[in-house]
Design a protein around this nucleic acid. Structure first.
Length: 420
DNA sequence: TCTGGGGTCCTAGGACCC
DNA sequence: TCTGGGGTCCTAGGACCC
């Protein structure tokens, strides 16, 4: 059974180019929230030495003004992503959407010849119908398919497809992949592997099993199996059932003031509650964290988080806010330069199966009506027009987005104009 | 001046139970 | 010098992913 991993090339940059064809062939980077770091780069920007995750202000001054910067525009990327996924799904029996820009495709029992043909077909169709370039890697396991995908981009056949169709090709693939480029090997494991003499994926595949188990836990064991062609990572065809939901952001600037930070906590709590309702689930507990800026070496650092349990699972904005504020008050300390805070909700259970506490009225019919009315109004205005008293506006810690493109596929007011 | 946000999975160790 | 054993659940923290 073959697995294909299809991945959009420099996805966010490609999306920006779709709306602004003049960016084609130019060095482009897309910045994270707050215009903080480069999170997507065009090939030209990579060639200029812009690394993934580089803060905007640290991009080499020699190339600063050559580079075109875009703030991230998630409504646009989300919409294009779902179009790509839909297109790919029409070619295969089953698809697992792995992230906004990539998916694993179950190629089922296709013959070797038709696997290759289908892959090429998918690539051409996505390009033609949506306008985005994709690459395809095909192999027997997810880890090898990921690897094949990277290989396709680097040493591709010019068609952006690599098919590890036999043992010889798999070995070639493994030997060409450095340990740090294996899916599932991060900085720590890469260092560990290198310092023990393992340089390539082929070395890891051939490593003694006991050593892998002892030093890399069951995670390593699975990884080694995957490299050996034994599928060890399960498919997740249905949308994953979430276990946690989180809302957090860096402030646009350092904050000291408790009231301002508390407002942010309330807003993130409200966002979590909204996400819970969208997900049709309720949370058992609410966690809040605050942190200073570890990059400011001169500052005294403080990070803390705390979890409070709720009497019964809830997705009610007022209830989540109440507990978040409670938690916040337990950990907030005056006198630090805060950079970030966030709210997480844990222990998610389906809304339908929530056992109500006898004395809890958070889901009374009245409150339900209020909740859904608030969601409707806020959705139709595209922002939080209706809020609980404690939330207030986000003045004081607003995000920066200086280079924002238009939401030309999802908002009629921002549709592309063509001058004839 | 300015360093993302949202997730998952795993392990170790403590609390608690019978 | 000796201090039950086995199980579950929870939390904190680490590592990794896009």
């Amino acid at each position: 059974m073959w697995i294909a991993l299809v991945d959009c090339n420099n996805f966010y940059v490609s999306c920006e180019r779709l709306g602004r064809p003049s960016l084609e062939g130019k060095p482009v980077v897309v910045l994270s929230n707050n215009d903080g770091c480069a999170i997507a780069r065009s090939e030209e920007a990579k060639a200029l030495g812009v690394k993934m995750g580089t803060p905007e202000f640290m991009i080499n001054t020699a190339v600063q003004d050559k580079i075109i910067k875009c703030s991230s525009n998630y409504p646009l990327y989300g919409d294009l992503s779902s179009r790509v996924m839909k297109t790919m799904a029409s070619f295969v029996p089953r698809i697992e959407v792995y992230s906004i820009d990539e998916a694993f495709l179950d190629m089922g029992g296709m013959s070797t010849a038709s696997v290759y043909k289908t892959a090429t077909n998918i690539r051409n169709t996505v390009k033609k119908n949506i306008g985005l370039p994709v690459s395809v890697g095909i192999a027997k396991t997810k880890t090898l398919a990921k690897m094949a995908n990277k290989f396709a981009k680097k040493h591709g056949d010019g068609k952006g497809v690599f098919f590890a169709a036999d043992e010889k090709l798999v070995e070639e693939l493994l030997a060409a992949t450095r340990v740090e480029d294996i899916w599932g090997v991060g900085k720590q494991y890469a260092e560990l592997l290198r310092s023990n003499g393992f340089e390539t994926a082929l070395d890891v595949s051939n490593a003694p099993e006991e050593w892998i188990r002892k030093n890399m836990t069951v995670v390593g064991q699975r990884l080694q199996n995957e490299l050996r062609g034994i599928p060890s990572i399960d498919w997740q065809f249905n949308a994953r059932i979430k276990k946690n939901i989180c809302s957090s952001k860096s402030f646009g600037k350092m904050l000291k003031d408790k009231v301002t930070i508390q407002k942010a906590v309330c807003n993130y709590a409200a966002t979590c509650a909204l996400k819970l309702r969208k997900d049709k689930s309720c949370a058992k507990s609410v966690a809040v964290f605050v942190q200073t800026n570890p990059f400011r070496k001169g500052d005294v650092q403080y990070t803390r988080s705390i979890i409070v349990h709720m009497p019964s699972p809830s997705n009610d904005t007022s209830v989540i806010i109440k507990h978040a504020v409670q938690a916040f008050n337990l950990i907030f300390k005056q006198g630090y330069n805060y950079m970030k805070c966030g709210v997480e909700v844990h222990g998610l259970v389906p809304e339908a199966q929530v056992q109500l506490n006898l004395f809890d009225d958070s889901d009374s019919p009245k409150k339900k009506i209020i909740k859904s009315a608030m969601d409707k109004v806020n959705k139709s205005f595209g922002k939080d027009l209706v809020r609980y008293a404690m939330q207030e506006s986000d003045e004081g810690y607003k995000l920066r987005a200086a280079y924002l493109s238009k939401r030309f596929t999802t908002n009629l007011n921002e549709i592309i104009e063509v001058n004839l």
